[in-house]
């Protein structure tokens, strides 16, 4: 088996593509984390090279498959550990079929796999537009914390910026990756907070609204039609932790 190891960046992945053609080696696995290799595995550590990445990028401008680079940036936000191999093969397929748009050839395993990755991300973006809860802080801005599967903070910020507008500055905090998205009412930024701890203080009235919301949640339910399976399907347990109506300790 041939394994490519790289740093997990978009440029790194494009360098992998470059080296794949240069070394005439097609990897079976592309990974950003060390993999358990067996004796007859061949491992290549691919160094990220901006020049190589640029040359590959330039190639895609003349390629029949549209939006490849945009889609790849999106797919790399996935929390799926197998994404690099799928994305790599998708890119390779687009290069090998320079004159045909392969993006809708769902009969191909990797095109379908790539579409699935993208779909999971856009699905989560849509879900998070609904399943994020803000609280009012003493400093006057709204604060929400969540733990999405994929790195979607940058993708949901525009939605909330349009919605909350100038009167309601806000902060969205991905506590899994410690990524913070901010709006001051006029513009937004997204940054990785690294090791920094983020402390916010909620207003005293906040707990009253949470209680009202829980009352609403309980009252609007029709007991005679209990269907927990259906609820679990739409509202997966993994999101419950950050929802006050499901997590009563919050």
């Amino acid at each position: 088996m041939t394994i490519f190891l790289f740093d997990g960046t978009k440029e790194g992945l494009l360098s992998c593509i470059f080296d794949c053609y240069k070394l005439k080696k097609t990897p079976d696995v592309v990974s950003a984390t060390p993999v358990q290799a067996s004796l007859n595995d061949e491992i290549f550590e691919i160094k990220t090279d901006i020049e190589k990445a640029k040359r590959v990028e330039k190639f895609f401008h003349g390629c029949a498959t549209k939006y490849v680079l945009h889609d790849v940036s999106l797919a790399l936000r996935s929390g799926d550990s197998k994404k690099y191999t799928v994305v790599f093969y998708y890119l390779k397929l687009a290069i090998d079929n320079k004159n045909t748009d392969i993006s809708r050839n769902y009969a191909d395993k990797y095109v379908l796999g790539f579409a699935d990755i993208i779909r999971k991300i856009t699905n989560e973006v849509h879900r998070m537009k609904g399943m994020l809860r803000f609280s009012e802080t003493v400093s006057g801005f709204l604060y929400a914390h969540y733990e999405p599967d994929n790195d979607v903070t940058e993708l949901i910020i525009p939605h909330f910026f349009k919605r909350l507008g100038k009167s309601y500055p806000f902060m969205i905090h991905d506590t899994k990756r410690n990524i913070v998205g901010l709006s001051n009412g006029n513009e937004t930024t997204v940054f990785n907070a690294g090791d920094r701890r983020i402390d916010v203080y909620l207003t005293r009235e906040e707990s009253e609204f949470i209680e009202l919301w829980r009352t609403y949640y309980d009252s609007v339910n029709i007991k005679e039609r209990k269907n927990l399976k259906l609820m679990g399907h739409y509202l997966p347990k993994k999101y419950w932790k950050n929802l006050p109506e499901k997590n009563r300790d919050l």
Binding site: H126, K129, G130, M131, H159, Y217, V220, N221, I222, K223, R225, K226, N227, L228, K229, L230, M231, H233, Y234, L235, L243, E245, K246
Partner: peptide, 16 residues
């Protein structure tokens, strides 16, 4: 939002 957004789901499986 033109596509509509569900914010939560009650125990009867209906969306809020």
């Amino acid at each position: 939002a033109v596509e509509g957004i569900c914010h939560s789901f009650t125990e009867d499986g209906r969306c809020i």
